[in-house]
Design a protein around this nucleic acid. Structure first.
Lengths: 212, 212, 212, 212
DNA sequence: TATGAATGAGACTTCATTCAT
DNA sequence: AATGAATGAAGTCTCATTCAT
């Protein structure tokens, strides 16, 4: 699925530096300008290679873009949140919430989401894969954590997936949409803390077993 | 409803039918294809006017697009949810939640959000205005409703804006992001009901005064 | 099948001058350089219009080429040879032969045949249409003449088509192939006369009723 | 005139296998796609060598093409027709005619003629050489045969060259032009026989001494 | 006002050719 | 000798915009 790079006899696994250069240049241009706004000429300039070289490594503009999204997907999917089931929900939820929203709203961080979302209508496969790997993947791991803690009696939840989503959605409240629409800058850590703590309280109110 | 000729010196407020035609054609094309994907030629065809006429009414492509977003903003901002403060939260919240998610995820409904979000990086002013009028506006009215009901003792809330956001975010859980990334089709009314009802329960668990 | 020109209100039948300009410029370039050798830029320059204008009148390079071939086909198909059945074969054959070979081998005249023949592998439809209208058409009319004269007792022929072809092929002997391969320049009228007269003699030897 | 081979100290006359490979690959690609249609990349692939290697053996694309034509010229010039002067014209003419038209119209056989003819305007030298070796050469040998038989009293001919051409041209009647313009497929052996037999009859009617 | 013709810049892509290894 | 990487010029085509009518 990935474009074949010029194959070197000696280097097999190691990624060719030209390919790396291109991907780096292209990521910047694509994320700044979107798929249509980016031109192959600008990408070549940003990557420091000739236009022709772009086509040595990638079949066409869409193929290069797909490779960028794939990389971004992997990079974002690899962001590690600490879901150690041994840790209590009182620690994990606020910490995860802060980290999650921090990633979501980090300066420059809206670009990937915006760019992929924008093209999802014309390249549904791409949007779907991005969603699955980046977003659904984190939800799944968080849901698994919740289930583990529920087994320990910390929580009482009927639908773990839904509960995980609810928490993550609440953590974004007031923050992400304003940010992605460029109506507000990246939120401060303090503001994030406020929102996440509130989300945590609401979540616990609903899913913590009643003390009796 | 007598149409005034475009050439009337006296008519200022009344919208010329040509302008109306253009806006209608352009909306369809822009929302279908995005800003870059749309071409002035296609817009002219969709509007049933010549390309030259486009430039009689709008200064350029960006200006026409801005006018569309402005209109869309007004149209979406006018969607009426029933926030009659006389109605109980048990009725209002599930009903509002269903309606809200229904609008958000209606077939073809992602287009406006996607299109504006996509361009927000290059036209931040546009994104910001859209956000303010369409999204923030609904939150404000919902928050006002919550405050009214809190005054009646139905709810105990410290930050109405945040609480309003939390509910609306939870209503989208599992639904909107999958939809906008083309990873899932429009959700069924049943699925929406399930998610909204769960959101309502969580909301009440946190914000309903404890019976004693 | 023909590209739609910009439609003028007043002029319906009259061919737009821009279209005419383009066709004239394109014919020259295509016939000089062949389909692949010709570039749209050069055609635009030769026609005295901008590159964009080319695409206003024709859908693409192949479409423009097809229009040229179509024109050439019509022009060549219209070349009138005098096949008046009242005229004797002694007059008609030498005269027709001279005219035919003259057209075939006129300076610059090989270009159309060469160009179309060259592209026939990739655009068989074009080659076939050209053949049918230009070549087969003349054969048909000549065969009809032969049949008319045979009815008058001038000739005894079993297969008129074949006989027509035979005469026309013999008229080209030593001339056309050398010419088309650029191995010889256009033949002189004297040389043509020699070849055609010989062809006529051979033809008569075979197809004239034996005097007795 | 022929491109210099890679200089081996020991091998001078022997053609390097790489050169052979390249020529074979290039012939196929050139004859299939024409000079302009063929790309050096495709030729390299067809030959199983790298693009760079092409330039070790040939100076450029035109040089490689010229080498192909040269080869093709030799190959086609070597096609042996039986012009044994001991054989009677009744045997030789029909047999030669059939073989000649068969070669001319064999499936895939139009390619070389088409390709060379197509480029003759831009590379006249090439066209001319091809014509001389392939076409004129056969005519010459056939004319020599006719002369030999005339000496034996079989025929009475004033211009052997012209007579040879006349016969060969008549043999193609209705067949070759339709074939080369892709207006008809390769003719069947039966059709060829019919046309050649008719050509033979006409030829004999003109050039056989009158029995008396 | 409204139009359709015309433009030229710039988009993506291909390809013959060169060069270091 | 042979290669694969790299290039940049040039190709086709699109499109926002202008202008005479």
């Amino acid at each position: 699925m990935v474009a074949a790079p010029p194959t070197s006899v000696h280097v097999v696994e190691e990624e060719s530096s030209k390919r790396r250069q291109i991907l780096d240049g292209a990521r910047k241009v694509f994320l700044d300008l979107g798929f249509d706004g980016a031109s192959m000429g600008e990408i070549a300039r940003a990557a420091g290679v000739s236009k022709g070289t772009l086509y040595v490594y990638f079949p066409d503009k869409a193929g290069l873009f797909a490779a960028i999204v794939e990389e971004e997907k992997l990079a974002q999917g690899k962001i590690i949140f600490n879901f150690d089931p041994a840790r209590s929900v009182d620690v994990t939820l606020p910490e995860f919430g802060r980290a999650y929203v921090g990633v979501l709203c980090r300066p420059g961080g809206g670009s990937a989401i915006r760019t992929v979302m924008a093209i999802a209508e014309r390249m549904p496969e791409l949007g779907s894969r991005f969603y699955t790997h980046v977003i659904a993947h984190t939800v799944d791991r968080f849901a698994a954590y919740l289930e583990a803690r529920a087994a320990l009696g910390d929580l009482v939840i009927d639908d773990y997936q839904l509960a995980a989503w609810q928490f993550m959605q609440m953590c974004q409240a007031t923050l992400f949409q304003a940010f992605i629409f460029q109506a507000a800058p990246s939120p401060s850590p303090e503001r994030i803390a406020t929102v996440v703590d509130s989300a945590t309280r609401v979540f616990f109110a609903a899913y913590r077993p009643k003390a009796n």
